[in-house]
């Protein structure tokens, strides 16, 4: 993979396998769920890296490993050049404060019994030594940054609308001055007229603070609007990787094309050519050998159909990587 010095996070051949056991006591191993099976990518400073794909393709597992809430089975995640697995206690602490997350549902991600002030201050209290006055000032400043007022600090989450709650969640994530923010479907629970407000806020914050985002989203138009790099995932593998112009303008992998064709049109006259994939995603316990997509490939080459080609990304144009098996499928 093209490696640049500008990278904040480097992921190399990352794997996460979960054992499937049978029996309450004996726990005999009956299979392995390959949630993530060898993915590599870089997240650059000040850029948005998006993961797209259907549920179960491993997007969330990837973010969990980057947030260090799940240890990888194999592979390396580097943060600013140092391997996460070899973090000292001090560097782990520093890492934890420089990575924050904003979740999909602002109704369940904010504690209903805490005041907004305490919600936003919590990461500061956890990670830093600050006096009450300093915290108060920071909270007020953060509320201003996300477009809210200092008097909102004394209220409870239920007093706010969805968009405002998501702003509070963003302020909380910003409170430790992070370098990376994980955005898991940041706007899909919000109303249409509010989505653009929150997306624009995220873009502005990125420019102001040189933040990196790792974003998960289903809506491809949102992904295109926000991202600098997009990875399309299928069954624990990255099948296509590149900048959004390339991915959405010149998709090479049939799965990417199917995802794009399933995206809803922006105008009733602009109906897309429909490329409906047959069936559903196979079980990750027993994925197809070699090319995981071959069971659903609409026009597989003979080699693809028989599973003769190993998966591996090849560069089709500068910075645009596609899985080598399906690059030639129709």
């Amino acid at each position: 993979m093209a490696s640049t010095d500008n990278s904040l996070i480097k992921v190399n051949n990352l794997k996460k396998h979960y054992p499937v056991t049978k029996g309450a006591i004996t726990k005999t191993l009956v299979g392995t769920v390959k949630a993530i099976d060898g993915i590599s990518f870089d997240i650059n400073k000040g850029e948005t890296f998006s993961l797209v794909g259907e549920s179960g393709c491993g997007k969330t597992t990837t973010t969990k490993m980057i947030l260090m809430s799940e240890p990888p089975t194999d592979g390396i995640v580097q943060y600013e050049g140092s391997d996460m697995a070899e973090f000292t206690t001090a560097s782990r602490k520093e890492f934890k404060s420089s990575v924050q997350a904003v979740f999909q549902d602002p109704w369940s991600s904010l504690n209903p019994k805490m005041r907004v002030r305490d919600i936003i201050a919590e990461p500061i209290v956890t990670h830093e030594k600050a006096t009450n006055n300093e915290i108060q000032e920071r909270v007020n400043e953060l509320l201003g940054v996300v477009g809210m007022h200092p008097f909102h600090a004394e209220r409870y989450p239920h007093e706010f609308s969805g968009g405002q709650r998501q702003r509070i969640a963003i302020a909380r994530a910003l409170s430790t001055r992070p370098k990376l923010m994980v955005l898991d479907e940041p706007v899909s629970a919000l109303d249409v007229s509010i989505r653009a407000q929150v997306l624009n806020l995220l873009k502005e914050l990125q420019q102001t603070y040189e933040l990196s985002y790792l974003m998960i989203a289903h809506n491809l138009a949102t992904v295109k609007y926000m991202s600098h790099q997009v990875a399309v995932m299928y069954l624990g593998k990255i099948v296509e990787l590149g900048n959004p112009k390339e991915i959405f303008g010149d998709p090479r992998h049939p799965y990417t094309r199917a995802l794009i064709s399933a995206a809803l049109p922006s105008h009733p006259r602009l109906q897309r050519d429909e490329l409906v994939l047959v069936g559903e995603v196979p079980s990750p316990i027993d994925p197809p050998s070699n090319c995981v997509f071959r069971t659903r490939c609409p026009e597989p080459t003979d080699d693809c159909k028989n599973g003769n080609i190993e998966m591996g990304l090849i560069e089709v144009s500068p910075g645009h990587w596609v899985d080598q098996c399906c690059a030639n499928c129709g």
Partner: peptide, 13 residues
């Protein structure tokens, strides 16, 4: 205000 897959915009109204 809806982002469009077929269009490039810098900032959504």
């Amino acid at each position: 205000s809806v982002p469009d897959l077929d269009d490039d915009v810098d900032m959504l109204p």
